[in-house]
């Protein structure tokens, strides 16, 4: 049996971590977690801190723990497919940057799901600040996720589907409330009651269908 000398080089560490038959597999994972847990944790905390969702602040540590577990699961799933895909074994700094990008992607995906869950049971007005606090890329990903989910929720052949999705997004994204939207000259003739009903209907269908989206 090879001698297990710590700390391992990055190349050896990744080699043992991704080979379940290696006699050092378990030790390597202990070392991996010891070496990178703090970096993963800090990255996830930093990403989550930029999302000021109303429910998030009360569940912050649980959410961060969930995401950290998800990152480790993501690295290991499908026979360590993601971890094996990393090629620059001689560069610790690049590995940390790569790990940070994975943390950001997993956190983004988790938080977008969290946002949609919040959206389905919170008042839209409470979410403006959360959106405005995000940077451009995060806002864009969130926007595209919500639009895609709304389209799925509204069914295939719904008349005025695109109009209704737009109205929902306008009230979510801007500070224009359902009472303001009918006054916009670009809007079709709809009363504020009709706008409220469209928003509520889409929120309900988001709630009903959220288990299918992620």
């Amino acid at each position: 049996m090879d001698q297990f000398v710590t700390p391992l080089t990055l190349e050896n560490l990744l080699h043992h971590c991704t080979d379940r038959s290696s006699p050092h597999w378990e030790h390597s994972w202990q070392e991996f977690i010891g070496r990178y847990k703090k970096a993963i944790y800090n990255q996830v905390v930093s990403y989550c801190s930029s999302w000021r969702l109303p429910r998030l602040k009360f569940q912050f540590s649980e959410v961060v723990d969930d995401i950290v577990n998800d990152v480790v699961y993501y690295l290991c799933r499908d026979d360590f497919k993601t971890l094996k895909s990393y090629r620059e074994h001689d560069n610790e700094k690049r590995f940390l940057a790569w790990l940070a990008s994975i943390c950001n992607r997993r956190s983004g995906s988790y938080l977008r799901r969290f946002f949609i869950e919040t959206l389905s049971d919170k008042n839209i007005d409470d979410l403006h600040d959360s959106i405005a606090g995000l940077d451009f890329d995060m806002r864009q990903e969130l926007y595209e996720t919500v639009v895609a989910n709304l389209r799925l929720s509204s069914g295939k052949k719904k008349q005025h589907k695109e109009r209704d999705v737009h109205i929902f997004m306008l009230s979510l994204w801007s500070e224009l409330s359902p009472t303001h939207i009918p006054s916009l000259p670009t809007m079709p003739p709809l009363s504020s009651g009709a706008i409220y009903r469209i928003i509520e209907r889409l929120r309900e269908s988001l709630k009903k269908n959220k288990k299918y989206f992620f």
Binding site: Q140, E144, H166, W173
Partner: peptide, 21 residues
């Protein structure tokens, strides 16, 4: 009507539209 489908598809245009409105 305005190009709702495009505004739903294109985040860049949507944010500009939102700001102007």
């Amino acid at each position: 009507e305005p190009p709702f489908k495009h505004l739903n598809d294109c985040f860049n245009c949507f944010e500009i539209y939102c700001q102007v409105m």
